[in-house]
Computed example of a mutant assay.
Amino acid sequence: MFQSVSMKTTYEDVLEHIESGIMLFDEEGVLVFVNKQMYAFLELARHSLLGCTMTHLLANIQLSRLKRKQVLRAYREMVRKNKPTYEFIDEYGRYWRATLRSGEQMKGSYLFILKEISDYKLIEQTAYQNDSLAMLGKLSASIAHEIRNPLTAIRGFIQLLHPHLHQLGKEEYAKIILAEIDRANDIIHEFLTSSKPSAPQVSMIPVSALLKEVVLLTESEALMKGCQINLHPLQGDMIISGDAKQMKQVVLNIIRNAMEAITERSDDYIGKIEVGARREGAEVRIFISDNGKGMDLCTLDRLFNPFFTTKENGTGLGLSVSDRIIKNHGGCISVSSRVNEGTRFVISLPLIQ
């Protein structure tokens, strides 16, 4: 008898310390065991449920309205509809799987097991997203190749017709058509780059020379859009290793996004873009900040997702490609922003010692 009681205590201690939540109802429907994980999920005081039935549990005044709904739905799905498992999301955004064990093997008792599966769901969603993006990348690459060939032919014929249009006084038509073809080719190039970025052509890049060249390229465009670009003086020689063209593409893309953010802000103010870099240990931090319209948290969370854009004519590939380029160079991009205050990008890259 003493040994039987001792074994029962041991089993209860084991069940008390497992990660899953446990509720055991006997053949009369009375709750005879609940472990601390289940109490934590229900957000109830310890040992406040022992001896009650499911009806009493649902009527417990300490049980919140949301928890009552979750327990009731799980009970209906598994007991009434004879489903062995039931998955749901709680009010904190966590994923849970409830499992019911009953029948002859339980001798009339009902065992409810609750396990958090948020990590599994995240892995599942990431795998699904990666598969979708891989398929989309292949599809976009094949479509882009098919579109690029006729565009090249059209561009050639327009150039041949250019003298005739000039004689008719319609030369501007040829310029518009050529500009639109070039814009379409640029979009196709972005698609191809996002689906299969080219390997970096590695060279030594002085950070100061890189930023000076990019600022020089964008100064006139910024003035036309009512912006000022300020290049902060750099301290010391900072050199990174990588593809100069790809690095220039990343910085240009972020500066042009900053210009767009400034022009989209409605109030009257002077648009400013600050560009600079500083050494932090074995890395360089290149920063690009603006006082444009800023972004909310929802936009920030999706900012580097392929094909996500807030622009009317955007492709949603610029920042996605930039993020991939920086990662290929062993670095990372971080961003902070506030609505109607501005945005700050920081590109972190390893330095050549």
Rank of each mutant, 00 (worst) to 15 (best):
R68Y: 04
Y92P: 01
N82V: 07
R80N: 09
L114E: 03
M78A: 10
R94L: 09
K69M: 05
Q62I: 08
R76L: 07
I61R: 10
L114M: 15
R73Y: 13
D90P: 00
R68D: 00
F112G: 02
G93A: 15
M54W: 03
L111Y: 03
E104L: 09
I61E: 08
L63N: 15
M54Y: 00
Q70T: 05
L57Q: 06
Y86M: 08
R94D: 15
R76A: 03
V71C: 06
L50I: 08
K69D: 02
E87A: 14
V79W: 02
M106A: 13
L66I: 12
A74Y: 02
Q70F: 08
Y75E: 10
H56V: 04
L66S: 14
K81A: 07
R97S: 11
R101I: 02
K83R: 12
G51M: 03
S102H: 06
R101T: 05
R80F: 08
G108V: 14
P84G: 03
M106E: 12
K67V: 06
Q70C: 04
Y92Q: 13
I61A: 11
I89Q: 07
R73I: 11
V79E: 11
L114T: 12
T53M: 05
D90V: 07
S102W: 01
L114I: 09
N82D: 08
L100Q: 03
R76I: 05
L57K: 06
A59V: 14
S109Y: 09
L114W: 11
R73P: 01
S64H: 11
D90Y: 04
L57R: 00
Q62W: 14
G103F: 00
L100W: 00
F88K: 01
R73N: 10
L66T: 15
V71D: 06
E77Y: 03
R68P: 04
S64C: 15
C52Q: 12
G108E: 02
T99Q: 01
T55E: 01
F112M: 12
Y110Q: 15
E104G: 12
Y86H: 05
R76N: 03
K107E: 10
E104T: 13
M106D: 08
G51C: 02
R94V: 13
N82R: 12
E91K: 13
L57D: 13
T55A: 00
R97N: 13
K115L: 08
K67L: 02
K107I: 11
Y86R: 01
L114V: 14
K107L: 14
K69S: 02
K81M: 09
G93I: 12
Y95P: 01
L100D: 02
E77A: 13
Q105M: 11
E77P: 00
R101M: 05
K69T: 05
K83Q: 14
K107S: 10
K81P: 00
Q105R: 09
E104C: 10
R65M: 10
Q62D: 13
E77I: 14
R80Q: 13
G51A: 04
L63G: 15
M54P: 02
M106C: 08
G108P: 15
K115P: 06
R101Q: 04
A74C: 05
G93D: 15
E91G: 12
T53K: 09
L114G: 12
T99P: 00
G93L: 10
